[in-house]
Computed example of a mutant assay.
Amino acid sequence: MADATAPSRRTRGGGGAARRAARSAVSFETARYIERNIPNYEVLSEEALEVIEHNAEVILEEIGVNFPDNPAALKRWADAGADIDGERVRIPRGLARQLCATAPSTYTQHARNPDRNVVVGGRNLVLAPVYGPPFVRDAEGGRRYATMEDFRKFVKLGYMSKWLHHSGGTVCEPTDVAVNKRHLDMLHAHMTLSDKPYMGSVTEPSRARDSVEMSEVLFGKDFVAENTVMTSLININSPMTFDDVMMGALEVYAQAGQACIISPFIVGGAMAPVSVAGTLTQVMAEVLAGIAYSQLCRAGAPVIMGAFVTSIDMNSGAPTFGTPEASQITYGAGQLARRLGLPFRSAGGFSGSKLPDAQAAYETSNSLNMGLLSGVNFMLHACG
């Protein structure tokens, strides 16, 4: 019996080659995701929250949301009991909230290195880098379009940062690679240059499918079928339009059991009402419809309620970041997310400044503090 169970000298420790590889491997310390002990700041009263929730359901029932060029989505909604008028979906009161109830309140996103798994939801805060900038700036070239080499450098920098728990997604837009294939190079960079969790492509449904299949190669098909290995950003085309590209990506990820951030991208005063309460009502209506749709695709699919709101410069029409109005909306959206029992995404190092000056410093610090106090669970744009 002892002979059968005793390890042999040959297999102990994996051999000399494995030990030499372990000694030479480059690894950087990463802090565990943050578990907040401070209370959340709640700016809205119970009465105000009930009014916003009531009016959001009025919008869904009487005005509805558009699902253009997506007959499969219209059929899903019709089968669920919604009223379909052309491409407009009117959702009866209570239906969206009922569907949202199947979404989990927390989920674990697995990383290539299990020590860097993150738990999204509850009192946890996961920090991820910037997402989506087409330009980069360096000492030699100044402001210029980003390249794939820039992308790889930013992934490496994110991996080296102790305080970033997540590798992110489109840390910059590499314009030197064709649009129809750059997602493959970008995802490959996250998979090979970092062992932190990452995001998948959402720019076309087939690219979302590529992301799932590449993850199956990395983690194993059976593992991906049972676990969340991607958290990807789905923006709603505000106001109240769910375009077929983003919804197609959402369908792929939800059906594969991968997490999606359902996040309206609202410029207050341009794509939503000017008032804080009015914008929050639209945010609530849009996320209810988007999260409900994810659950129509697969009940229990992990999802995050997102809110990415800016105000508008009435002189230039440009979005402004780091403003008090955006903070108020973010605080209120956090309260609404907690009432739905869902993880919350927002905030980050936001600033409307074009220079690394005092304005950039105070707007960024105020925005980061807003994210901490509003109960954000997944902070996209935490740096960069």
Rank of each mutant, 00 (worst) to 15 (best):
E61A: 06
I59G: 04
S374W: 07
Y41Q: 09
A146R: 04
S45T: 15
W163S: 02
T203F: 14
I63S: 11
A78H: 13
S374N: 02
R10A: 06
A18F: 07
E286D: 08
S45Y: 15
I38T: 09
L193P: 05
Q295P: 02
A301W: 02
V287G: 02
D150K: 02
H54Q: 14
M1N: 13
S353D: 01
L250N: 00
G14E: 08
S327L: 12
V212R: 07
D313W: 01
N113P: 04
L60H: 01
H110I: 05
S215V: 11
I234K: 04
A146L: 01
Q109F: 05
V376D: 06
Q255V: 05
D222V: 13
I91V: 13
V155N: 05
E213P: 07
K153G: 06
L125T: 04
N235A: 07
A178K: 05
F265M: 10
G158K: 01
F135H: 15
A270S: 14
L187K: 01
A361V: 03
A21P: 00
P39D: 14
T279K: 10
P302W: 03
E173Y: 04
M246D: 06
G168A: 09
T11S: 15
F321E: 08
V43H: 05
V283F: 09
A285T: 07
N227E: 12
L44G: 03
V274T: 05
A73S: 08
K196W: 15
G278C: 00
A96R: 00
G306N: 09
H54C: 11
M314A: 11
G158L: 03
V274Y: 02
A301K: 01
D79Y: 02
P7K: 10
T30G: 00
A48D: 06
G200T: 00
G384Y: 06
A272N: 05
E325R: 00
L342S: 03
Y131I: 08
P197A: 14
Y33A: 00
V287Y: 02
S351M: 12
G348W: 07
E363N: 11
A189Q: 00
T106M: 11
I291E: 00
H188P: 03
M271V: 10
Y362F: 14
A82L: 09
H190Q: 07
D150P: 03
C260E: 03
P302I: 03
A299P: 07
V119W: 13
F67G: 04
T147G: 03
T281D: 02
N113Q: 14
V119G: 08
N117T: 15
S105I: 11
R152I: 02
I329W: 04
E213M: 04
E363G: 10
A56V: 08
F151C: 03
V229S: 10
F265V: 10
N66A: 12
I291F: 14
P7L: 11
N66F: 12
D69W: 13
